[in-house]
Amino acid sequence: MLETDRLVLRPLTRHDVDALVDLHADPLVNRFVPAFSRERALSRLAEIEEQWSERGHGLCAVELRATGEFIGRCGLNYWPQFDEVEAGWTFKPAVWGRGYATEAAAASVSWGFSHLGLGFVTAMIRADNAASIRVAERLGFTPRREDLLFGNPVTVWALDAQE
Protein backbone atom coordinates (compact mmCIF):
# COMPACT_ATOMS: atom_id res chain seq x y z
CA MET A 1 0.00 0.00 0.00
CA LEU A 2 1.20 3.50 -0.88
CA GLU A 3 -0.02 6.72 0.69
CA THR A 4 0.35 10.28 -0.50
CA ASP A 5 -0.90 13.48 1.08
CA ARG A 6 -4.39 12.93 -0.34
CA LEU A 7 -4.52 9.35 -1.60
CA VAL A 8 -4.24 5.70 -0.63
CA LEU A 9 -3.15 3.21 -3.29
CA ARG A 10 -3.78 -0.45 -2.51
CA PRO A 11 -3.62 -3.51 -4.75
CA LEU A 12 -6.77 -4.09 -6.78
CA THR A 13 -8.58 -7.35 -5.94
CA ARG A 14 -11.67 -9.21 -7.08
CA HIS A 15 -13.57 -7.28 -4.39
CA ASP A 16 -13.16 -4.16 -6.55
CA VAL A 17 -15.12 -5.61 -9.46
CA ASP A 18 -18.12 -3.26 -9.19
CA ALA A 19 -15.94 -0.17 -8.83
CA LEU A 20 -13.83 -1.21 -11.84
CA VAL A 21 -16.88 -1.92 -14.02
CA ASP A 22 -18.41 1.45 -13.06
CA LEU A 23 -15.15 3.32 -13.73
CA HIS A 24 -14.72 1.80 -17.18
CA ALA A 25 -18.41 2.18 -18.08
CA ASP A 26 -18.18 5.97 -18.20
CA PRO A 27 -18.12 7.10 -21.86
CA LEU A 28 -15.46 9.72 -21.10
CA VAL A 29 -13.22 6.98 -19.70
CA ASN A 30 -13.83 4.29 -22.29
CA ARG A 31 -12.81 6.56 -25.13
CA PHE A 32 -9.26 5.51 -24.20
CA VAL A 33 -9.58 2.28 -22.19
CA PRO A 34 -12.04 -0.56 -22.79
CA ALA A 35 -15.33 -0.96 -20.97
CA PHE A 36 -15.61 -4.20 -18.97
CA SER A 37 -18.42 -6.64 -18.46
CA ARG A 38 -18.50 -8.01 -14.94
CA GLU A 39 -16.98 -11.28 -16.21
CA ARG A 40 -14.16 -9.50 -18.08
CA ALA A 41 -13.49 -7.28 -15.05
CA LEU A 42 -13.19 -10.35 -12.82
CA SER A 43 -10.78 -11.92 -15.30
CA ARG A 44 -8.69 -8.74 -15.44
CA LEU A 45 -8.67 -8.48 -11.63
CA ALA A 46 -7.46 -12.10 -11.42
CA GLU A 47 -4.60 -11.16 -13.78
CA ILE A 48 -3.77 -8.16 -11.59
CA GLU A 49 -3.78 -10.29 -8.42
CA GLU A 50 -1.50 -12.81 -10.17
CA GLN A 51 0.89 -10.05 -11.22
CA TRP A 52 1.07 -8.79 -7.62
CA SER A 53 1.79 -12.34 -6.46
CA GLU A 54 4.37 -13.18 -9.15
CA ARG A 55 6.05 -9.83 -9.81
CA GLY A 56 5.47 -7.85 -6.60
CA HIS A 57 3.65 -5.03 -8.36
CA GLY A 58 0.46 -4.32 -10.25
CA LEU A 59 -2.44 -1.94 -10.55
CA CYS A 60 -3.94 -0.32 -7.47
CA ALA A 61 -7.28 1.04 -6.41
CA VAL A 62 -6.92 4.75 -5.66
CA GLU A 63 -8.97 6.04 -2.75
CA LEU A 64 -9.25 9.43 -1.13
CA ARG A 65 -7.46 9.36 2.22
CA ALA A 66 -10.08 11.57 3.82
CA THR A 67 -13.12 9.46 2.88
CA GLY A 68 -12.00 6.11 1.45
CA GLU A 69 -13.92 6.83 -1.76
CA PHE A 70 -12.71 4.87 -4.81
CA ILE A 71 -11.77 7.46 -7.45
CA GLY A 72 -9.76 5.40 -9.94
CA ARG A 73 -6.93 3.03 -10.57
CA CYS A 74 -3.21 3.56 -11.00
CA GLY A 75 -0.05 1.55 -10.71
CA LEU A 76 2.57 -0.47 -12.51
CA ASN A 77 1.51 -3.05 -15.08
CA TYR A 78 3.90 -5.50 -16.74
CA TRP A 79 3.27 -6.06 -20.46
CA PRO A 80 4.90 -9.37 -21.52
CA GLN A 81 4.59 -8.53 -25.23
CA PHE A 82 6.85 -5.49 -24.69
CA ASP A 83 8.82 -6.84 -21.68
CA GLU A 84 8.20 -3.46 -20.05
CA VAL A 85 6.52 -2.04 -16.96
CA GLU A 86 4.00 0.68 -17.65
CA ALA A 87 2.63 3.28 -15.28
CA GLY A 88 -1.09 3.44 -15.95
CA TRP A 89 -3.78 5.72 -14.57
CA THR A 90 -7.53 5.93 -15.04
CA PHE A 91 -9.76 8.15 -12.90
CA LYS A 92 -13.42 9.04 -12.63
CA PRO A 93 -14.22 12.16 -14.67
CA ALA A 94 -15.73 13.77 -11.55
CA VAL A 95 -12.22 14.08 -10.08
CA TRP A 96 -10.33 15.10 -13.23
CA GLY A 97 -8.28 18.28 -13.02
CA ARG A 98 -7.40 17.95 -9.32
CA GLY A 99 -3.92 16.48 -9.75
CA TYR A 100 -4.83 13.01 -8.47
CA ALA A 101 -3.48 11.17 -11.53
CA THR A 102 -0.14 12.97 -11.29
CA GLU A 103 0.05 12.38 -7.53
CA ALA A 104 -0.80 8.68 -7.76
CA ALA A 105 1.40 8.01 -10.79
CA ALA A 106 4.36 9.86 -9.24
CA ALA A 107 4.07 7.70 -6.12
CA SER A 108 3.81 4.51 -8.21
CA VAL A 109 6.79 5.36 -10.41
CA SER A 110 8.94 6.43 -7.47
CA TRP A 111 8.08 3.20 -5.66
CA GLY A 112 8.89 1.18 -8.81
CA PHE A 113 12.32 2.75 -9.09
CA SER A 114 13.16 2.44 -5.40
CA HIS A 115 11.66 -0.99 -4.60
CA LEU A 116 11.78 -2.86 -7.89
CA GLY A 117 15.00 -1.49 -9.35
CA LEU A 118 13.38 -0.67 -12.69
CA GLY A 119 15.64 1.02 -15.23
CA PHE A 120 12.74 2.82 -16.85
CA VAL A 121 8.94 2.96 -16.81
CA THR A 122 6.70 3.52 -19.82
CA ALA A 123 3.28 5.09 -20.31
CA MET A 124 1.33 4.04 -23.41
CA ILE A 125 -0.91 6.90 -24.44
CA ARG A 126 -3.15 7.45 -27.45
CA ALA A 127 -2.39 10.64 -29.35
CA ASP A 128 -5.84 12.13 -28.66
CA ASN A 129 -5.62 11.64 -24.87
CA ALA A 130 -4.39 15.15 -24.07
CA ALA A 131 -5.01 14.85 -20.31
CA SER A 132 -2.82 11.74 -19.97
CA ILE A 133 -0.14 13.33 -22.11
CA ARG A 134 -0.08 16.30 -19.69
CA VAL A 135 0.26 13.91 -16.72
CA ALA A 136 3.15 12.11 -18.44
CA GLU A 137 4.87 15.42 -19.20
CA ARG A 138 4.44 16.64 -15.60
CA LEU A 139 6.14 13.44 -14.42
CA GLY A 140 9.08 13.93 -16.78
CA PHE A 141 8.18 11.24 -19.34
CA THR A 142 9.25 11.83 -22.95
CA PRO A 143 8.08 10.12 -26.15
CA ARG A 144 10.22 7.07 -26.96
CA ARG A 145 8.47 5.23 -29.81
CA GLU A 146 5.19 4.52 -31.57
CA ASP A 147 3.55 1.12 -31.05
CA LEU A 148 0.23 -0.74 -30.96
CA LEU A 149 -1.70 -1.70 -27.83
CA PHE A 150 -4.85 -3.77 -28.33
CA GLY A 151 -4.78 -2.74 -31.98
CA ASN A 152 -4.72 0.98 -31.16
CA PRO A 153 -1.79 3.18 -32.09
CA VAL A 154 -0.08 4.61 -28.99
CA THR A 155 2.91 6.74 -28.24
CA VAL A 156 5.11 4.98 -25.74
CA TRP A 157 6.39 7.59 -23.32
CA ALA A 158 9.24 6.66 -21.00
CA LEU A 159 10.96 7.86 -17.87
CA ASP A 160 14.43 6.56 -17.05
CA ALA A 161 15.50 5.89 -13.48
CA GLN A 162 17.78 8.57 -12.08
CA GLU A 163 21.28 7.31 -11.43
Rank of each mutant, 00 (worst) to 15 (best):
C60H: 14
M1R: 10
E63K: 01
R144T: 06
L7W: 08
G56R: 13
F113H: 03
G68T: 04
L23E: 10
V156C: 08
H24Q: 11
I125C: 03
A61S: 11
E49C: 03
A106D: 15
W157C: 03
T122L: 09
R40K: 15
V29A: 12
S108R: 05
L159D: 05
A61P: 01
T13V: 09
K92C: 13
Y100I: 06
L59N: 00
E137H: 05
L42E: 14
G72S: 07
A87S: 14
T13Q: 05
G88W: 03
H24Y: 09
I71Y: 10
S110L: 15
P27N: 10
G151E: 11
A127I: 07
E103A: 07
F70W: 04
A61G: 00
L159A: 06
R145E: 11
Q51N: 01
W111D: 14
R55V: 01
A107G: 08
G97C: 14
L149V: 14
D22C: 11
A46N: 06
A94H: 13
T90D: 07
R138L: 11
V33H: 05
Q51T: 12
V33E: 12
G112P: 03
P93D: 13
F36D: 12
R40T: 15
L20E: 08
D83S: 14
S110R: 15
W89V: 09
L2Y: 08
V109Y: 11
R65N: 00
L12E: 00
L28Y: 10
D22H: 09
V135A: 11
